[in-house]
Structures are given as structure tokens and as C-alpha cells.
Design a binder for these strands. Structure first.
Length: 293
DNA sequence: CAGTCGCCCTGCTGGC
DNA sequence: TGCCAGCAGGGCGACT
């Protein structure tokens, strides 16, 4: 399940192996992969051919290839998407939904996605309203609605704190809301909450400024640690651009650890349903609120 | 408008 | 052994 660190690992791979190359031909298989591209897969493939890839950029879990003429190929990996750089001589991958050939003799780029929550679209780039964001080519239109992620220059902890303290919903819900802060999924939400000793169902608006600051720092720390380890992997669905799995999953303290002793206090980690998915937490370090939000 | 919910999809797992 | 329900879950449209 690629979240921010995993997507960043993929972005770095694209920057190294794809940026600076010119697309000779794009091939899209099926219609679902281009469902966010209103003009359809044929239009997308046609408009990508001949385009130079100038840069690889990212905000949260959205990744995009900067093309010429202020346009970008926006890519979301969904739950199981992979971008693979490998020879076109190799047999097609199972669940391979797109391939990109370049006008050199190098390997092709492949988009592979088992559960098909991911997708590709061509979009206009517009200047980022966030000051000094570091996104020199701008932000694609389909990404404009999400908030900066915790690892980018445009992220403002003051803005995020104000947002949290006006929200009537549970803090975990706010962490997962990409319009409040982007890049956090179920795994890193649970990990950051565990590190902060906060239960995910605590009402966001009851948290003090310093508690939000601490939580934010834990989000940043756990993501940096995952990034340093090359991303998290569980079932080999996540593979980086060269096909190598990450290994940060060995360091998870909460997510997926139901029944295992908490690293801090030894109490068994508990799993509970929340928002139609699972939450993992230590019932001693992360006291549930009296009134659940 | 803030908040919440259900659906999209495939493969693996566990229970009977 | 085989079958099927349940689970994994990001994002978005459709509601209240």
C-alpha cells in the first residue's frame, strides 16, 4: 500500500531512469487505467507520444511526470500500483495496464496494478499557490485540491494545527483527509498515533496545540524513517521502480501487529474496526476517549 | 459547507 | 479438497 514514502521512492526511481527521455509511444490496455482522463485512453496515448519527460514531481501520494507545454502525466498508484523500468523484451507483467517506449534504446516504463485503484491522466500544470513550495513546474489540476504533505517545504504546521483544532471528527480521520494534510494512509496514521500515544478516535478539536505539534513531528519522523529504509512492503505488491521491495515493515510498531506486545509497555496491540478499515493501537499507551468520536 | 458513507477492484486467507 | 465470505483500502461521488 504505497503511502508518501513509497511514492517518493518511486519518484526518485523515475527521476533517475525516465527524466530526460522522450516518449516515442504509449500503450494503454483497457479503459479503467485512464478513467480519470476524460478524453479516454486512446486520446491519452496519442497525446503522450513524442513528449519529453522534464522532471518527476510529487505531492502526497500523487506522482506526476512533468512534460513540455505545462502539462503533466499524473499517476496515482492506488493500493497496488507499480511503475517498473524494464526491457520491452521481457514478457508483459500480469495486470500491466500501460507501457511507455522511449526514442532511445533504453528500457520501457510499465504501469502495473493488480487491484486497479490506480490510474493515469494528462493534466495542465498551474502555479502552486503555496509560497516557496519547491514545485517549480507547478501543480497538476487534479492535485490542486489536496494539502501539502508533511515532508515538503510548503507544509505549514501552524495552518495544519488550526485546521485540526476546528475539526469535529476523530484525529485519525483528519490525518487521513488529504485536504488537511496529504500523503498519510492507514499505516502511517496508526504508526504516528502510536508514537504520539494518542488514540485515533480522540476528537481533533480537543487536542492542544502542543499535542498537534508532537503528533505532526511523529508523522514526519516515521515517514523519514520509512523513506530511509526504502519504503514499506507487505505482500510484494509494492515494488519500487527497479522491482526491489522495501523492508520498513519490519519496523512497524502498531499497524498489523494485533496480539504482539507493545514495544513500549508490553500490552498486546489491539485491532479495531474504524471507518470501514482496521486501526491498530496499544490500549495502554493510547487510551481511548470516554466518548468515541 | 462540513461530515459521512458506499463503491470501485482483485487476490489471498480462513472457516466450514 | 473446494467453496465462498471476508478483508485489504485511496479517492471520489453522493448523500445528509
Amino acid at each position: 500500500m504505497p503511502e508518501l514514502p513509497e511514492v517518493e521512492v518511486v519518484r526518485r526511481g523515475i527521476a533517475e531512469h525516465v527524466v530526460g527521455r522522450r516518449i516515442e509511444a504509449a500503450h494503454l490496455f483497457g479503459t479503467r487505467v485512464a478513467r480519470r482522463h476524460p478524453a479516454g485512453p486512446e486520446d491519452l496515448a496519442e497525446r503522450l507520444s513524442g513528449r519529453l519527460v522534464r522532471a518527476a514531481d510529487r505531492r502526497g501520494k500523487y506522482l506526476w511526470l512533468v512534460l513540455e507545454d505545462d502539462e503533466a502525466l499524473v499517476c496515482h498508484l492506488g493500493m497496488s500500483g507499480q511503475l517498473l523500468v524494464e526491457s520491452s523484451e521481457r514478457p508483459p507483467r500480469r495486470h500491466q495496464h500501460a507501457t511507455f517506449d522511449f526514442d532511445d534504446d533504453g528500457p520501457q516504463l510499465r504501469f502495473v496494478d493488480q487491484r486497479t485503484f490506480g490510474g493515469l491522466a494528462l493534466a495542465d500544470l498551474a502555479p502552486d499557490p503555496h509560497l516557496g513550495s519547491g514545485h517549480e513546474y507547478g501543480i497538476p489540476a487534479p492535485v490542486a485540491h489536496i494539502a501539502p504533505d508533511p515532508l515538503e517545504a510548503a507544509f505549514d504546521v501552524e495552518v495544519f494545527t488550526r485546521r485540526v483544532r476546528t475539526r469535529r471528527s476523530a484525529i485519525k480521520r483528519v490525518l487521513l483527509d488529504q485536504t488537511s494534510v496529504s500523503g498519510i494512509g492507514n499505516i502511517y496514521a496508526d504508526e504516528a498515533l502510536w508514537r504520539a500515544g494518542l488514540h485515533g478516535q480522540r476528537a481533533a478539536q480537543t487536542l492542544s496545540r502542543s499535542t498537534v505539534a508532537t503528533l505532526t513531528a511523529h508523522v514526519q519522523d516515521v515517514m523519514r524513517a520509512a523513506l530511509a529504509a526504502g519504503g514499506t512492503s507487505f505482500d510484494a505488491l509494492y515494488v519500487n521502480v527497479n522491482g526491489a521491495s522495501g523492508y520498513f515493515d519490519r519496523s512497524l510498531n502498531a499497524y498489523g501487529q494485533a496480539g504482539s506486545p507493545c514495544e513500549r509497555c508490553g500490552t498486546p496491540i489491539r485491532r479495531e474496526a474504524f471507518m470501514n478499515r482496521s486501526s491498530f493501537f496499544c490500549p495502554r499507551c493510547q487510551r481511548p476517549p470516554r466518548v468515541r468520536t
